[in-house]
């Protein structure tokens, strides 16, 4: 066989990729499964496959259907928008390479969050929680507050790791204690409190942030299954953050009860 005929043979014996996608038309309608079979291209990821389906929305039975909806933004695993459950595990679809997945590739929305349509979920709960735990550093005043204290370089490098969180929701999807029976704000949020409390200016309001996680739905809801740290795509040391905040809230609890009126340090 000449090289040419092999090439022709390979081209005609078309390789395809099979997808099983859990779809849902409206936030309240019932989910259903639909299969798709699309042509294989080298270096495909789940998003490029979804784009292929959008271009030609025909399911595996050859019937025309509606295009599958999903969310995306950065396409480089820094925004978190494209998170979904792929072959049983929550992760980002933009970095899920087809070559590394077993087929059929099963896509489901992260049902810990309300489903908007198909694979699109509403992560508003996390954004609200960020506001609730005061995940920012107050620098505004009625006059120029000047420069804040300097952050030691080694601490900055360490804090950078915690700041990589993209609020993707994967750790909430992985946590057995984040569900509709509890109102646990989730591992990421506890770690954010640690991040902002370790910033020299942020530390000026550390007691206020600790109070927010010592309330309903806060750190007390953690049951130490430690799935979050396994699931986080950014390798954030979530369980270390949780244990560190456990210690900080223990101290805060005693301070609140036995301490004086001086709360900050």
């Amino acid at each position: 066989m000449s090289e040419q005929t092999t090439a022709v043979k390979e081209a005609t014996a078309k390789k395809t990729v099979r997808f099983e996608i859990q779809r849902q038309d409206t936030p309240d309608s019932n989910p259903y499964w639909e299969s798709f079979e699309i042509d294989y291209r080298p270096n495909m990821n789940v998003i490029s496959a979804l784009m292929e389906i959008r271009r030609n929305p025909v399911n595996a039975e050859g019937k025309k259907t509606t295009p599958v909806n999903w969310d995306m933004n950065c396409l480089e695993e820094v925004c978190g928008a494209c998170s979904m459950v792929i072959n049983g595990r929550p992760r980002q679809s933009c970095t899920a390479l087809v070559d590394q997945l077993t087929q059929p590739i099963r896509l489901e929305p992260m049902r810990t969050f309300p489903v908007v349509r198909d694979l699109v979920v509403d992560r508003e709960f996390m954004f609200d929680s960020l506001k609730r735990v005061k995940a920012w550093i107050p620098i505004d005043g009625t006059y120029d507050l000047g420069e804040g204290p300097r952050m030691p370089e080694r601490k900055r490098q360490w804090a950078y790791e915690l700041s990589k969180c993209m609020t993707c929701g994967v750790c909430l999807e992985a946590c057995p204690n984040v569900n509709d029976k509890t109102n646990f704000i989730g591992p990421a949020l506890i770690s954010q409190v640690r991040l902002f409390n370790s910033h020299p200016t942020g530390a000026m309001n550390r007691d206020e942030r600790l109070e927010t996680i010592m309330a309903d739905g806060g750190i007390g809801e953690c049951g130490n299954s430690q799935n979050c740290v396994v699931a986080c795509p950014k390798g954030i040391p979530l369980t270390t953050s949780i244990a560190a905040m456990n210690r900080a809230t223990t101290v805060q609890m005693f301070k609140n009860f036995f301490g004086s009126d001086h709360m900050v340090d």
Binding site: G88, R89, A174, P176, N177, N179, K181, T182, G223, N224, S225, Q226, N227, V230, A231
Partner: peptide
């Protein structure tokens, strides 16, 4: 109450700690 508000998922994450969480 705590036990019945968890949604166990050892099929998804079969790690040692997740099993301990379930067994607890």
């Amino acid at each position: 109450y705590i036990a019945f508000t968890a949604k166990n998922n050892v099929q998804r994450y079969g790690t040692f700690r997740n099993w301990m969480f379930l067994l607890q």
